[in-house]
Measured scan of single mutants.
Amino acid sequence: TETYKYDDKREAEKAAEEFRRRGITVTVEERNGTWVLESK
């Protein structure tokens, strides 16, 4: 599991889209005002 942090929800979702395009499952969730993207 890799974790990436973003200040902006849009950025996180854009990154998530890129991962999914490569066939990687990711989750995006907000933690304490930071958007956390996790690849499984």
Rank of each mutant, 00 (worst) to 15 (best):
A15F: 04
T34P: 00
S39N: 10
R22P: 03
L37V: 14
R22C: 08
E29P: 00
N32Y: 05
V28N: 00
F19I: 05
D7T: 15
E38D: 06
A15M: 10
K14M: 10
E29R: 11
Y4N: 06
D7G: 11
E30Y: 15
Y6H: 02
Y6T: 02
G33C: 03
T34H: 14
R10G: 11
T27A: 07
A15W: 06
V26H: 02
W35D: 01
E17D: 10
T34V: 15
R31V: 12
Y4T: 08
W35M: 01
N32L: 05
K5Q: 13
Y4S: 05
S39G: 07
E30S: 06
Y6W: 05
W35H: 01
E38H: 12
T3L: 13
K5T: 15
F19S: 02
T25P: 10
L37F: 03
T25I: 14
E13G: 02
V28I: 13
V36M: 05
R10A: 14
E11W: 04
R31S: 06
T34K: 15
A16C: 04
K5I: 15
A15L: 03
R10M: 12
E18S: 07
V28A: 02
E18N: 06
E13A: 05
T3E: 09
K5W: 15
F19N: 02
T25C: 10
A12Y: 02
R10H: 12
T3M: 12
Y4A: 07
V26T: 03
A15D: 03
V26Q: 00
V26R: 01
K5D: 05
V26C: 05
R31W: 07
T27E: 06
E2Q: 14
F19T: 02
E30Q: 10
V26E: 00
G23F: 02
F19L: 14
E13S: 03
K14H: 08
K40G: 11
K40P: 11
N32E: 10
V36Q: 04
Y6S: 02
D8S: 15
R21H: 07
L37D: 00
E30K: 08
E38F: 14
E30D: 07
K14L: 11
R22L: 12
T1Y: 14
D7H: 13
G23K: 02
E17M: 07
R10N: 11
K40Y: 14
E38Y: 13
V26P: 01
R10F: 12
D7C: 09
E17C: 08
A16V: 05
T1P: 11
T25W: 15
R21G: 06
S39W: 15
G33Y: 02
E17I: 06
A16D: 00
R22M: 10
L37W: 01
A16E: 03
K9V: 09
R21Y: 06
R20A: 11
K14G: 04
L37C: 04
N32C: 10
G33P: 01
D7I: 12
V26A: 04
A15N: 03
A15H: 06
R21L: 10
R20I: 07
R10D: 14
E30P: 04
E18V: 06
Y6C: 02
R21D: 08
V28E: 01
R10S: 11
A16M: 07
K14A: 13
E13I: 09
T25L: 14
G23L: 01
L37T: 03
T25V: 12
Y4M: 10
T3K: 11
